[in-house]
């Protein structure tokens, strides 16, 4: 059934789930929500499975007219979500009634919000995922007049994330990195400078990657034999300006990578606005896996409460 009509599409609003699996070897980017934690929690709050498709809202949100009465949640960055002009809480499921308008105001914290609906959005699926990837024609961003459909369940609103669990998106973050695989090609001095310095997010940052401006000096040979590029991989070209590769990244690359930002810390990166500051700290692969397992454990427990 029709859930929303799009009155205004917003700056860049796309369906995203947890991404496409199994097509990297054919050169198809994984895509999926940049803030995977926020999307998964959003889905849990409305009683969905964690990987259901939501809308990823960027900076300037859309204006959506509700065509039914159903339960929604908005998670992730605080882009001032409102129903009929009144602020609604983030990280909490709320009821929207037929005829009401969901809209967004000023971005206050973070740059990406996630709108999830009970039952999920029934967007077109390509190769097992509803995640939009425009360059290959896999869906497109919202446009005025679009109708968003789904099959919401009858359920109560008011499920919220305990406040201590709400991520603390900041304009100045430190994220954990597992070193490699090409750090040996970079001088020890440049590697230690990379971890000691603060880098700044460039305006040329998007779903493919976050470009950083940095005072890092390096003169290493930046070409390598092309290899598979992981989510969070940090490319370090010869000019010393790192790029953190995200969900819409190319599947392979031929530039040196100094390390990989660990999954649990990627939402902090994805919520940084241009001009935001970022520092890197090194962890072992074991520590990184422990952090990922702790997050997975939490999500599993929360999911059990609502399903």
């Amino acid at each position: 059934m029709k859930l929303f009509s799009v009155e205004k599409p917003g700056l860049y609003t796309t369906y995203q789930d947890l991404g496409r699996v199994g097509y990297l070897k054919y050169g198809v980017p994984a895509s999926g929500a940049l803030d995977r934690f926020a999307l998964q929690v959003g889905n849990i709050l409305v009683g969905n499975e964690r990987g259901a498709a939501g809308l990823e809202v960027t900076m300037q949100g859309p204006e959506l007219l509700a065509e039914e009465t159903f339960v929604i949640a908005v998670t992730g960055g605080d882009l001032s979500p409102m129903i009929n002009g009144r602020r609604i809480p983030l990280w909490k499921s709320v009821l929207i009634k037929k005829g009401q308008v969901l809209e967004f105001g000023q971005p206050r914290l973070g740059v990406r919000a996630y709108l999830t609906v009970s039952g999920g959005f029934h967007a077109q699926s390509y190769m097992g995922s509803r995640s939009v990837y425009e360059p290959a024609g896999l869906g497109r961003r919202l446009e005025k007049g679009d109708e968003l459909v789904g099959e919401p369940r009858k359920q109560k609103a008011g499920t919220g994330l305990f406040f201590t669990e709400i991520p603390d998106y900041d304009r100045d973050v430190e994220v954990r990195v597992v070193k490699g695989p090409h750090h040996e090609q970079i001088s020890d001095k440049a590697v230690s400078d990379f971890f000691a310095m603060t880098h700044e997010v460039s305006p040329q940052s998007n779903r493919m990657g976050y470009r950083l401006q940095s005072d890092l000096e390096t003169n290493h040979e930046a070409n390598v034999i092309s290899d598979g590029v992981p989510l969070g991989g940090i490319q370090l070209p010869g000019n010393g300006q790192p790029i953190i590769l995200l969900a819409d990244r190319q599947t392979t690359g031929g530039y040196t990578r100094i390390g990989t930002v660990i999954g649990p810390d990627l939402p902090l990166v994805a919520q940084l606005p241009p001009g935001g500051k970022i520092r890197f700290s090194e962890v072992s692969v074991e520590e990184a896996q422990e952090a990922a397992k702790q997050e997975e454990q939490k999500l599993r427990i929360w999911e059990r409460f609502t399903r």
Partner: peptide
């Protein structure tokens, strides 16, 4: 193991650390 990407002289293997350690 979720998927893999063969390249010129390497293969990148993607996996779920919940199920498998490095």
């Amino acid at each position: 193991i979720t998927e893999w990407v063969p390249a010129y002289d390497s293969v990148a293997i993607y996996y779920d650390p919940w199920k498998l350690s490095y």
